[in-house]
Each structure stands twice: as structure tokens, then as C-alpha cells.
Simulated assay, not measured.
Amino acid sequence: MARTLCNNCNFSLSTCICSAVKDVNNHVNVIILQHPSEEKIAKNTAKLLNLSLSGCQIIKGENNNDFDILKSLPLETTVLLYPNEQAINLDDKAQSAELSKITHLIVIDGTWKKAYKILQLTTLLNQFKTISFKQLPKSRYAIRKAPRADSLSTLEAVAHSLFLIEQLNPAPLYNLLDELIQKQTQHMPEHVKARYLA
């Protein structure tokens, strides 16, 4: 039997997180390129960003044909969040002049493997500068296991980026993530919950 979903947040009624949603007015537009397999994952955090941020859109796909929007973004002021060797570190104070010009932030939503696949198939992304961080904030997102120590959820990566680019207060976004974790773990047996939240 299909579970009844909340009309607003699209989570099941028992895990609805609407009470924790706060409107966040961001100046840098966030464009999330989402691997199709992420959409059905209950613990996916991209949709939390879409619920809160005033400037955010999620586009599902895997390649240039799916992400036609990339052709219309301003080249000089759009950046891709991806930790490659050319990436400008947002937390490097010497780059502050560069940060003030950013108008659009592209983020790939998927596992590392799927994100890399999107990067390979979407050559339109090659035209944008990449950004990353020297120091990662500690991930709060314990309910989805990641194979790499430098893994952040999509919400955490975007919240930290907007904090560094436009000094946006990340607390409402982190509170929403905490609510998701609380709701997703509320029915777990204690020994299972302890394994996740240790």
C-alpha cells in the first residue's frame, strides 16, 4: 500500500518536516543537477534546500541533453561546486574578490560515483570555474553512509558554500537537516540508531 505523502514537503506524513522549514532568502541562485536515482531516496537532502531557499531549482538528469539550462547561465559569474585540482577554495581569504562576483552555484546531487558520471557526460560543465573548501565542516549527516571522509550531504555543502560566498546564516538549513535525521531515525531500534548516530 502506498504511503500518504505530505503535499508540501513530499515526505511521508510520519516523517513530515514542514514544521522545521524556514524561508531563507539567498542571493546566489543554486542549481542542483540531480542524478535520477536520488529522487526516490528518503534521506536525500536536495529537496530540503528546495523547500527553504528562495533561489533554488532541481533538474534531474545525467547529461548535456538533460541539463540544457547550463547554456543560459552567465559564464563569468557561475561556479560549479566540485573538488578538483583547479578548484578555487571558498575559505581562502585571498579569493574574496572572486567570491563577490558569484551569481549562480551549480551542485551535483548524487553519490561520488554518480556525480563523476554526470561530470563526464555533461561537457557543458567544463566551461565553469570550480570551487571547493580547504576546511570541511564536520558532517552532521550520519544517517546516510558515505565512502569518503570528505563527504558532505548536498544540503551541508550548499549551506557552507552560501555561508562563505554571501555570509548566509546556515542555521535554518542545518535545523531542517537535524529534523530530517530525527524523523528518519525515530522508529529505528535503539541499537540500530546508535550505530548511525555514534
Rank of each mutant, 00 (worst) to 15 (best):
E166A: 07
E179A: 14
I143C: 10
L177Y: 04
A157M: 04
R148I: 08
A157Q: 07
S153A: 13
E156H: 11
S153E: 03
L162C: 12
K145E: 01
K145M: 01
E156R: 13
N175H: 13
R140N: 12
H160I: 00
L176C: 12
K145F: 00
S153M: 06
A171D: 15
D150I: 04
N175S: 15
N175F: 10
I165T: 02
A157L: 06
N175C: 11
I143H: 09
Y174M: 13
N175E: 15
P147V: 11
A142C: 13
S161D: 03
S161K: 00
S161Q: 01
L152H: 05
H160M: 08
P172I: 04
L180H: 01
E179Q: 15
L162P: 03
L164G: 00
A159L: 14
L155P: 06
S151R: 00
I165R: 02
K145C: 00
T154Y: 08
L177D: 01
L168I: 05
N169V: 08
S161R: 00
S153N: 06
L176Y: 06
R140M: 11
L168W: 02
Y174F: 15
S139V: 04
A171S: 15
V158A: 13
D178I: 07
P147A: 09
L176R: 05
A146H: 12
I143M: 07
R148Y: 13
E179K: 14
N169F: 02
D150F: 11
Y141E: 06
I143A: 09
N175M: 11
A142K: 14
A142W: 02
D150T: 12
E179M: 14
L177V: 12
Y174D: 04
L164V: 01
E179I: 00
N169Y: 08
Y141W: 12
R144F: 12
T154V: 13
A157D: 08
A171T: 15
P170I: 03
L177A: 09
L164A: 12
S161T: 05
L180N: 00
L173K: 03
L176D: 04
R148E: 13
H160W: 12
L155H: 04
L173N: 01
T154S: 10
A142N: 12
P172A: 04
